Amino acid sequence: MKKQFIAAGFVGFFFLFPVKGLAANFSNIYIFGDSLSDTGNIFNFTQNLENQLPSVPPSPPYFNGRFSNNKIWVDYVGETLNLNPIPFSENPNIFNQSINFAVGGASSGFGNAVVPNVPLPGVLEQVSLFTQTFLSTNPQVDPNALYAVWGGGNDYVFGTDPNPINTVQNLSNALNLLATFGAKNIMVFNLPDLGRTPLALATMGLAPILTDITVAHNTQLATSLDIFKSNQPDINVIDVDVFSLFNQVADNPRKFGFTNVAIPCVVGSLISINSVCDIEQQNDFLFFDSVHPTTRAHSLVADAALLALESKSVPEPGAVLGMLAVGALGAAGVLKRQQKQSAFTQANPVLVGQSSHTMVEN
């Protein structure tokens, strides 16, 4: 299996592989994960706790319950597919619309790594909650929906005994649970290099440790996915490689429009913010706070996810053209969104389940 990595530039090649109207392929989209995918769940939960906890994340400077300065990948992908998921904390009708179950701080399994004393669901727990609710009135979950799973980062940053084997097993259990009850289209993200986050870079000795853990996690996840695909040949598994994407951006920031990849825009913690960069400069940063990407970075993740979807329905290009096409998609996506949006820590992070890479067989 060869991996097609995210490369910068080469906008001309984008037109060789246009993203089709994918909305017709999926009836709904369901999201399971942590703060990297949360569009308001933990914000709604903590608001309802009144004086027990401050609202997380604080808005402003964070955008509408998202751990970023504006839209995140869930928003961008949802807009493209015309399937905009509603946070499950807003009590949507689970049976006829897209829903986002992701909760900031979610562990890969059960509970919350950042707010441990509040009953907030981990990634596996979110999937279990969804399947139990859906199956209460249906023989199976919607086979025509798209299911996205991204988690694990909180286990390593906040876990007392981080172990990639246990974390990946939780994610594998989540995938198998979805498959068992009828899911046919599952998108899985790997983790970006946690050792290259501002949090790790600012903590002596932490960066190499988190890099090693990330590599071990992604290797274990790839192996687990190979087994899953072999055992479930009728399921469409969409791999999204965030690890390669973020390393490409960190190594070549200016090609992607970034000027700062090591220092966050927001300095402080989620409950005590010391400073925030000027709003005009926010998307010059790869990271909005010490672990969460800016909306520009999220737009690149969305482009990688959409290309991974597209690669399932068109003949796969050669490795070199594949690299150019992915980079072109990222560049074109950023330019398009810059035209649409004129405005869009070192924080005590609610690190959402980070994982994603577009592993495409060639």
Results as ranks from 00 to 15, higher is better:
residue 287 F to W: 14
residue 6 I to L: 10
residue 139 P to C: 10
residue 131 T to A: 12
residue 240 V to Q: 02
residue 346 Q to N: 14
residue 155 D to R: 05
residue 261 V to F: 09
residue 108 S to K: 04
residue 308 A to T: 08
residue 112 N to A: 01
residue 101 F to G: 00
residue 124 L to A: 04
residue 136 S to N: 11
residue 132 Q to S: 12
residue 298 H to D: 14
residue 148 A to P: 01
residue 15 F to Q: 11
residue 146 L to M: 06
residue 169 Q to L: 08
residue 284 D to F: 15
residue 163 N to P: 01
residue 356 S to N: 12
residue 353 G to E: 11
residue 243 F to D: 07
residue 361 E to R: 07
residue 265 C to Q: 02
residue 308 A to M: 04
residue 158 F to T: 03
residue 201 L to G: 01
residue 323 M to S: 11
residue 251 D to N: 15
residue 350 V to P: 05
residue 338 Q to G: 09
residue 266 V to M: 08
residue 342 S to L: 10
residue 263 I to A: 08
residue 116 P to L: 01
residue 235 I to D: 03
residue 130 F to G: 01
residue 283 N to V: 05
residue 351 L to N: 08
residue 178 L to M: 06
residue 351 L to R: 05
residue 342 S to G: 13
residue 291 V to R: 01
residue 202 A to I: 00
residue 240 V to N: 00
residue 193 D to N: 15
residue 304 A to L: 14
residue 162 P to V: 07
residue 195 G to P: 04
residue 308 A to R: 02
residue 50 E to L: 12
residue 300 L to T: 09
residue 166 N to T: 03
residue 181 F to A: 06
residue 279 I to N: 09
residue 222 A to T: 08
residue 213 I to V: 08
residue 242 V to W: 10
residue 189 F to H: 09
residue 357 H to L: 12
residue 202 A to N: 11
residue 239 D to G: 12
residue 12 G to S: 13
residue 24 A to E: 15
residue 212 D to I: 10
residue 174 A to M: 06
residue 268 G to S: 06
residue 235 I to K: 02
residue 134 F to L: 07
residue 94 I to W: 02
residue 119 P to M: 00
residue 254 R to I: 10
residue 329 L to P: 05
residue 266 V to N: 02
residue 264 P to R: 06
residue 277 C to M: 07
residue 306 L to V: 00
residue 216 A to E: 06
residue 68 S to A: 13
residue 182 G to P: 03
residue 318 G to K: 11
residue 129 L to E: 05
residue 58 P to D: 08
residue 330 G to K: 10
residue 110 F to K: 08
residue 337 R to I: 05
residue 129 L to A: 04
residue 228 F to K: 00
residue 72 I to F: 00
residue 178 L to G: 05
residue 309 L to R: 10
residue 142 D to M: 01
residue 232 Q to H: 15
residue 110 F to M: 06
residue 164 P to E: 02
residue 349 P to D: 10
residue 161 D to K: 13
residue 125 E to K: 02
residue 269 S to E: 10
residue 89 S to M: 05
residue 336 K to G: 12
residue 8 A to H: 11
residue 84 N to D: 10
residue 328 A to F: 09
residue 309 L to D: 07
residue 232 Q to K: 13
residue 348 N to Q: 09
residue 317 P to E: 00
residue 335 L to H: 15
residue 344 F to R: 15
residue 101 F to M: 04
residue 56 V to M: 13
residue 340 K to I: 12
residue 40 G to I: 09
residue 166 N to D: 06
residue 35 S to V: 03
residue 239 D to Q: 10
residue 204 M to S: 11
residue 64 N to Y: 11
residue 361 E to H: 08
residue 106 A to C: 04
residue 131 T to D: 01
